[in-house]
Amino acid sequence: MAAWNMLTLVGADRSGIVAQVTRTLYQLGGNLGEASMIRLGGNFTIMLMVRGDFSTEAMLEALAPVSAKLDLRVHVDAVRGELHQHQVPNFQVRVNGADRAGIVAEVTAILAALGFNILELDSNVAGEVNQPLYLMNIQGFCDAPLKALENALAPLIAQGVAVTVTPLELMIG
């Protein structure tokens, strides 16, 4: 089985990027794995696992016409791919506050000190143009109890950043 590559792609958002990129990879003989694709600040971004019997250079070469046409920046790295090994998050951390530098660094430093492993993080700058609001949503796994997370985050909350931690319950049926 061929090794996995991680394809990273960024370009101004427009209709048809996914269709044309994945068609090209399919025609090259590529097989797709897990992916994250999302619009960030008007850019469309792709992180995509791809494998096939071709070199990373061949993949970039095949994508060159589409990249040029849609003005996309594409990057490929060989990676270790592990399918069928999903980790299930047991905590959700929601953050919101007046947008300022440092919120992410401060929240995640506290979480990291407790061994919290971030499995997914998304953030948005919303609110009004002259009064931006920063919103962040983290899902991850941590062995520490809820109280320990809340206590560790309390000083930050006292400074006016709204942070809530919610245990996530998985129901298997």
Binding site: H84, Q85, H86, V88, P89, L168, E169, L170, M171, I172, G173
Partner: peptide, 13 residues
Amino acid sequence: IGREGCLSVPDYT
């Protein structure tokens, strides 16, 4: 909203 998994859909929640 809650997270679910299923015996009929292994390795996905």
